[in-house]
Amino acid sequence: MNNEPRTVAVLGAGTMGSGIAVVMARAGHRTIMYDIDEANLRRGLDSVHGFLDHSVKLGKLSQDAADTAKRSLSGATDLRELAPSDIVVEAVFEDLALKKELFGRLDDIVSAHTLFHTNTSTLSVTGIASGSRHPERVVGTHYCNPAPLMKLVEVADGRHTGSPAHEATVAFLRGLGKTTVVTKDRPGFIVNRFLIPWENSCIDALENGVATRDEIDAAVKGSLGHPMGPFRLLDIVGMDIHQQVATRLYEQLRDPRFFPPPMVERMVAAGDLGRKTGRGFYEYDDTRLFGS
């Protein structure tokens, strides 16, 4: 039942949407990637193909499996083409009004059994579900970036999510090979809830002269067993993204631990966003990003 092929629509052809589309297509689901913008959609589909080709080159996926996944993938710029969807996964910009509107319009297009998943990282599942007349079928499913490589999906119910939708969602995600954890509809769920204050406290420690960049990264990586120190990670995430996520969480929680420290604003103002601009906490010759 879990592995039965479904039709899955992925809304949004950005980094997360493309990554989720890889997950779906690779698992044998008929996958329709939707984006309102034709050029974005093309880039997203290319990125899925590129990921699958790279997986074949690395020996992680057979050529046959990659070809099958590509055949199961299609694109759409018209929501009406999503009518056959069993599951819709929303991965558009973190804009509450946009997410609500998409779910509301899909109410009239998809079937009465279709599950609505939202990959929001900082907005309320309940708030997004309020855009649909069927909030009992809306579930928060937060993937980690890069979605095809990271096993974790955080599952959060909104106030009106029904247990059949929750159970079916967990079973579906496990069928994808994901590890699910169940959490609450609270800002940042688990991962961002703890990552953002942690990163902020490391930036504070640097700004206040507790230790140097290299010392903090060495201690965190070498003695806490994190895969990399906080400043290496922030350079990959991007200071603009950190600022956005931190600010959004702060606006909801009003807890100063979430507010980006002054150094973040200075780095963003200076254009020192991290790897993608060649300079953040560290300097880089090569501005290519991992996983893109």
Binding site: C144, M150, L152, V182, K184, I190, V191, L224, G225, H226
Partner: peptide, 21 residues
């Protein structure tokens, strides 16, 4: 506060952030 169970909290942080523990 009931954000998640103990195991789910640890699993989320270990898998989501790659922390060893």
């Amino acid at each position: 506060d009931g954000l998640a169970g103990a195991e789910d909290l640890d699993v989320a942080i270990e898998l989501g952030l790659g922390y060893r523990t």
